[in-house]
């Protein structure tokens, strides 16, 4: 009998330890923010820059055809380990959906270059094999930088993140668009941002 009571108590104790996990609707996520960069910061920065790019109209080719864009270097000058793809992915998806840009992946997808080796193989139907002189060369390049600065203000920590990006015309080296988004946060002085 005593054994049953102990078991029952143990079960009650353990069931009290079950942590609740809930899904968040990303469309209207207003839950508490953290001091470090998080997904919503990247979404805000990307959305703001996409709007600016589309509003400026500089990505509209005179003949209506899409530009070929390559994603260049995005420098992470923060104290955090960041996957900069979080920022560039949203931008490239939105730009591709806009119909103004097509992104070349020859730099990031090794298979683009390696697929040329199939030309030598008799195992493959050559109709599907990429021929010489068929890769689309990039016309525009997207590059950028993410900065972080921290200050002490009235005992709190003030953190400023700056996302800056630019699009360069590779035919002449001129910048056709430049954008910047600042995200500022005030957190407890002990908040960790790295």
């Amino acid at each position: 009998m005593k054994k049953y009571v102990v078991m029952l108590l143990a079960m009650l104790f353990l069931s009290g330890c079950v942590t609740k996990t809930v899904l968040i609707d990303t469309e209207n996520d207003t839950t508490e923010r953290v001091a470090a960069l998080e997904g919503r910061d990247f979404e805000d920065a990307a959305s703001s820059m996409i709007e600016d790019m589309l509003e400026m109209g500089t990505l509209s080719k005179p003949n209506g055809q899409p530009y070929i864009l390559i994603i260049s270097r995005i420098e992470n000058d923060t104290m955090q380990r960041i996957d900069v793809d979080e920022l560039t992915k949203s931008i490239r998806i939105a730009l591709m959906k806009s119909g103004k840009v097509r992104v070349t992946a020859f730099q990031e997808d090794n298979m683009v270059m390696q697929s040329a080796q199939l030309r030598k193989s008799k195992e493959f139907n050559q109709a599907n094999v990429r021929q010489k002189n068929s890769l689309a060369a990039p016309e525009l390049s997207l590059s950028g930088k993410i900065n972080q600065r921290e200050f002490r203000v009235s005992g709190d920590k003030r953190i400023e993140y700056r996302f800056s990006m630019s699009i360069t015309d590779l035919s002449n080296g001129l910048t056709v668009w430049e954008g910047e988004k600042k995200i500022k946060k005030i957190a407890d002085k002990n908040a960790v941002t790295w």
Binding site: V22, L23, I24, D25, T26, E27, N28, D29, T30, T31
Partner: peptide, 8 residues
């Protein structure tokens, strides 16, 4: 008001 986004 858009709520907090937490789905029950």
């Amino acid at each position: 008001e858009i709520g907090d986004g937490l789905l029950d």
